[in-house]
């Protein structure tokens, strides 16, 4: 509503930007200006229902403004130090990555060589059985993702899933 209150000029977009979902906004004003203004103000004065208050609180939880951390205040020396450490870390990671890739490549080559050797050995039946692709392979559920605090007995060698089902 126009804060000078003398004309019936209304900008509804201002109200829409402030309201949530199903709050009613004044979209038209009668010709009797003063009366219309007071009635509209009464309706809209900061009174939200309980559900609307909940929605407002929820929206504040996902709003972007609070998630942006403050920019780090670093002097030039700090910045140089940071860049040096970052570059060294990236280099270290690249070495690890390259070594891992090398290992996998070597493993692949060795698998291929073993299969070639088996084929050239002449036993076709043995070769077919050894190189047959097995489908439906699953990693065992007992294989856990390692943690910093592993259990005292890491692997129970005597345990087998069949025994568990019998019990």
């Amino acid at each position: 509503m126009n804060k000078f209150g003398l004309s019936n000029f209304v900008r509804p977009s201002i109200f829409r930007s402030h309201c949530l979902g199903s709050i009613k906004t004044p979209t038209s004003v009668s010709t009797f200006v003063r009366f219309a203004r007071t009635s509209a103000k009464k309706k809209n004065r900061g009174e939200l229902s309980a559900s609307q208050v909940r929605q407002k609180n929820l929206l504040s939880a996902v709003s972007g403004a609070r998630k942006v951390p403050r920019k780090l205040d670093m002097c030039v020396e700090d910045l140089i130090r940071h860049n040096t450490v970052t570059r060294a870390w990236a280099l270290y990671q690249k070495e690890i990555r390259d070594k891992r890739a090398q290992n996998l490549e070597r493993q692949y080559r060795m698998i291929d060589e073993a299969c070639d050797a088996l084929k050239s050995a002449g036993d076709r039946n043995l070769y077919n059985k050894a190189t047959k692709r097995e489908f439906g392979k699953r990693f065992p559920m007992e294989l856990r993702v390692p943690t910093d605090t592993p259990p005292k007995i890491v692997w129970q060698y005597e345990w087998s899933p069949e025994e568990k089902e019998k019990k």
């Binding site: 996998l104 493993q107 698998i111 190189t131």
Partner: peptide
């Protein structure tokens, strides 16, 4: 790598 390997 071993599971999904198929020779030739």
């Amino acid at each position: 790598l071993l599971i999904t390997h198929k020779h030739e």
